[in-house]
Design a binder for these strands. Structure first.
Lengths: 249, 249
DNA sequence: GCGTCCGTATGACGTTCATCACATTGACGT
DNA sequence: ACGTCAATGTGATGAACGTCATACGGACGC
């Protein structure tokens, strides 16, 4: 489940074996990133106001309820977005991927962060202070449009989560839904789509609002029904069509 | 449950007894509306590209899955945003109030509308065509910022919905949560906060992802426990603190 | 005044799932 | 090789809730 990397920031220039881009202008992956793919002039402004940092796995970028300090642009690595109840039950709202902007809604509205953000991998993150970010948006239509696009995506993704949580009749259905969603990033093999699941059953449970035991049981059930095959951290979807048929949403 | 208005567009200049504002520039409530509260110059552009229409109760502004035609600015009335499963189960995602912009995320991303929108009251709506709206945003930072604010609000509201659906342990908790949310717009009386609920048990059930019967039962239960009192379409929260104590989210 | 319709109320019953309890497996360090 | 700890697997049990069935009540039209 864990990735073999040193847990200390040991050896610059490449801590954690990350491919670090110190300035956005010569970032090699900028064009692929929806938010960062802006004109040279705009990126130059972005570059001037951003602070780059490398975080180890398990770092908290921000915490639910905290007043917004600014936005975090995820250059590399994955970030877990969670929300928790008083009793300590945790719901994983989303796993953010590289290229996403985190904390934008809270920053724009000057409202507390609505979720917590924790790195799942060693990650490079560009931070922009609240006032700098707002000034950036207010003086640059391109940046503002790209932010609106990011927010729209976040909204759509949240909407999908709501559908899954609110419309699915059973937990099996939610889990099938999750597997099929993941299939989009899976690798096709003769056996079926192969997913590399870097999450524990506990974390999967937190993604669909259920308990660890239930996830274990349902996965067992799926195996017995020859819908999936589990090999280490890989899951093969043997019968994707049947899984899709279980989903009513 | 229903409002006494003629169901046909009968007598201009005020069909449905609505206070219609034909041009945004002399709209008397513009300043109170987060999105519309922009400079005269920007509002003039908005006014030039918008189409005003009055819809009767029950009109579909757009349908989930449909390609985005543009955005809808809700000038007056309420709009029910829903999403449905294949089996016909419906989830009410949100009741939009006057001042909200609907369909912006889909329009910005050129992705199908993620929800359906149906008027709950006779409503005045300003429609802006997709290309006009995008051009408006791309050439006007103020409009773009106000749109980003709208999107941020929608995201936060969706996030709250996710919390309630995913973290609540029981349906009672979700219902208590809903009642307490509604209390914000309620009226204080000696008996406790008074809510005017213009929704049927069926619709309430669709808001929290349960069945009509369960809503009826839980409300009965709340009555027996002296937490609420129901009088027609009014609900009095007799013991708001106890309701809040039930909520773990 | 009476039937019709929609919304609400309530009972019976079975399924799903959370909870608690404990066993098993696998990775990793010493 | 062995101990340790996290992750996974599995059983027993009861509460919560969906489903079906049926009854009640108020609004409205004729």
């Amino acid at each position: 489940m864990s990735i073999a990397v040193p847990e200390r920031r040991s050896a610059p220039p490449t801590p954690y074996n990350l491919d670090v881009h110190n300035t956005c202008l010569d970032c090699s992956v900028r064009a692929e990133r929806l938010f960062c793919n802006m004109s040279i002039e705009t990126v130059a402004v972005l570059d001037a106001i951003k602070f780059t940092a490398i975080y180890p796995k398990g770092s908290l970028l921000f915490v639910e309820g905290e007043d917004p300090r600014g936005v975090f642009i995820l250059c590399s690595g994955r970030v877990k977005l969670t929300t928790s109840s008083r009793e300590g039950k945790t719901l994983i709202v989303k796993i953010a991927e590289a290229g996403e902007v985190l904390g934008a809604s809270a920053t724009i509205l000057s409202q507390p962060y609505e979720v917590s953000a924790e790195t799942l991998d060693p990650s490079q993150v560009n931070f922009i202070k609240r006032e700098d970010f707002l000034r950036f948006l207010n003086t640059n239509v391109e940046a503002c449009m790209h932010t609106a696009e990011q927010l729209s995506q976040k909204y759509q993704s949240a909407q999908r989560e709501i559908r899954s949580l609110g419309l699915a009749r059973t937990t099996s259905e939610k889990l099938a839904n999750l597997l099929v969603d993941w299939a989009a990033e899976g690798e096709e093999t003769p056996k079926g789509t192969r997913l590399t699941v870097l999450l524990t059953h506990e974390e999967i449970a937190q993604m669909i609002g259920t308990t660890r035991e239930t996830v274990t049981r349902i996965l067992s059930d799926f195996r017995k029904k020859q819908l999936i095959e589990v090999k280490g951290s890989s899951i093969f979807l043997l019968a994707r069509a049947k899984l899709e048929a279980m989903i009513s949403t």
